[in-house]
């Protein structure tokens, strides 16, 4: 390619410099400092000690469980509810602009503001959610105060906030399906359910994959919502890996915190990459 010369790497350099220095380089050195006891000025090599801590301390171990629950639950709900909404919002509904805008707006609101608001709405006795549940005779749970429930409550709020983006991506996917397919299935005598199962679902596969990937990546890395709603509590019951990284950093255990970062990196790589490959392979099979 002779014309390559004109697309000089000099134009790429500023972006690469910023990105390499403040993103790639820290990521690379984390694989060293994760194995040390570290004060930012001095370090001492301690081998796998930090990682051993992560797997032995119950207060750290719980972060893994919660991170998986959080990521898979939010991804699953966003896809399922998102598909349902996208089907409705691609129909002839006259109010769809209103509905779509309302569902989408929380995407733009700060996570901390959403977290604080919902922690009030989820107050066990005075919170609006339990007050309403009480009116129809249901004794609402202590959403954030019950250690077995807290992480699920936070996950629900994450779905509430992120549903808009999932729905919008799925709508874009469904809108790109040519109408001919639907006409064909109608001629063959198929009903709406057939059309959904045989056309809408398989043909919006790329959009569904995108939503799954985005939700998983986001879910595995989440920190701010948990921090705003429960602070990882009660106890450590709703801590995620990302919130443990923060807590260890605050406590001055920089090596341990960095080991958490390394683990999070590995988990994202181990979970997201195979799923990415798997989802894309399926697409080719179609």
């Amino acid at each position: 390619m002779k014309s390559n010369k004109i697309y000089s790497y000099w134009l790429l350099l500023p972006a690469l410099l910023i990105y390499a220095l403040l993103f790639l380089y820290p990521t690379v050195v984390s694989f060293f400092f994760g194995f040390t006891r570290w004060t930012l000025t001095e370090w001492e090599w301690i081998g796998f000690e930090n990682f051993r801590m992560f797997f032995e301390e119950p207060s750290l171990m719980i972060g893994f469980k919660n991170t998986f629950i959080f990521a898979f639950l939010t991804a699953g709900l966003k896809v399922v509810v998102g598909i349902f909404l996208a089907v409705i919002l691609t129909s002839k509904l006259k109010t769809k602009r209103f509905v779509r805008s309302t569902i989408f707006f929380p995407v733009l609101v700060s996570t901390i503001a959403v977290g604080i608001t919902f922690s009030v709405l989820m107050h066990p006795s005075e919170g609006l959610i339990n007050v309403v549940l009480g009116m129809i005779g249901i004794d609402g749970p202590d959403w954030l105060g019950n250690p077995n429930l807290a992480i699920y409550s936070v996950a629900l709020v994450d779905v509430w906030k992120g549903l808009g983006i999932a729905t919008v991506i799925l709508i874009a996917g469904m809108m790109s399906i040519p109408n001919d397919y639907y006409e064909a299935i109608q001629i063959d005598g198929g009903n709406k359910w057939n059309a959904f199962v045989h056309i809408t679902l398989p043909l919006s596969r790329p959009a569904i994959n995108t939503v799954v990937m985005l939700a998983l990546i986001g879910g595995l890395r989440t920190f701010d919502l948990v921090w705003a709603m429960t602070g990882g509590g009660p106890g450590f019951s709703s801590d995620l890996i990302a919130s443990i990284i923060y807590k260890q950093y605050q406590a001055g255990f920089y090596g341990l915190s960095t080991a958490g970062n390394v683990l999070l990196f590995l988990i994202v790589a181990i979970i997201v990459y195979p799923i990415f490959r798997f989802l894309n392979r399926k697409e080719v099979d179609l």
């Binding site: 790429l12 972006a15 993103f23 820290p26 570290w38 930012l40 990284i245 950093y249």
Partner: peptide, 24 residues
């Protein structure tokens, strides 16, 4: 390769303390 490296940034969580270390 560089494209791949940039795209990886969409997935990788930023390493917190090492970034502070670099900034310092």
């Amino acid at each position: 390769t560089l494209s791949g490296l940039f795209l990886a940034g969409l997935m990788i969580p930023p390493a917190v303390v090492p970034t502070i270390w670099v900034l310092e």
